[in-house]
Amino acid sequence: MTANRDTPTRAAAPNDVQQRRVAVSRSAAATLEGVNAQHIQVKDYSFFYGPTQVLFDLTMDFPERHVTALIGPSGCGKSTLLRNINRMNDLIDGISHQGDIQIDGSSIYDPYLEVISLRKRIGMVFQKSNPFPKSIYENIVYSLRVAGRNKKSELDETVETSLKAAALWDEVKDRLQESAFSLSGGQMQRLCIARAIANRPEILLMDEPCSALDPIATGKIEDLIHDLKKEYTIIIVTHNMQQAARVSDKTAFLYMGQLIEYDETEKIFMKPSEAQTEAYVSGRFG
């Protein structure tokens, strides 16, 4: 709406997207052939914080070993949806829901289901990085320790593989016993990612993993998401359109708690069917 909108960076965006997209769709095609299962299914899902409805009748599927991006303006309910998939919202008072979310065909609200084992299947990277006040090493092995796995060799190996996967190994391999708080913001973010994948979950929920990261760190994390996709079903929330375009196979656009459009990323960014989507991805509102 102001001259700001037409700054050179913004203008350059579509090109960038296109370049990246080519690479994305190639790799996506390869994996899509083998696996086509709908890993997470959201069915007529509505969610309330007390009397306030935040999510309205969402129905969407997240395919296995794909990256799905959730985009939408601030406060539209992206985090809320994400946090419901591993039932982290249970901690909040006075919540209620309608409809269902299923993972591999079974409801996450099944009374026979142990929430703890549900959460073990799902790794989560929070919007605000939250390393524990422990050493780097202990942060990574936490999920193993709470599962009662304390074998030194296994822990050491997990630390190394997780940190390597999160592209942090080289930076911290000599200071694993130092406090996690001694890391920089971007390193902490990657530590949280390493921590989330340490127990090798099936699903990875990432809530703005690159907020407050510089372009280099962002690039590393995006590369990481690329690699992780081979094993994990990833849902990523982002405000960065280029990032959504770069890393995701599918993109869902939420607006005020409603699913406006959900499709292949390429389609959302190139030919969105909804006017609102187009307006949002082209930066005209939000």
Binding site: N86, M88, L91, G123, M124, F126, N130, Y142, R195, N199
Partner: peptide, 10 residues
Amino acid sequence: FRSGSLALGA
């Protein structure tokens, strides 16, 4: 911290 721990299956 609590959410972080719970999310890791503690």
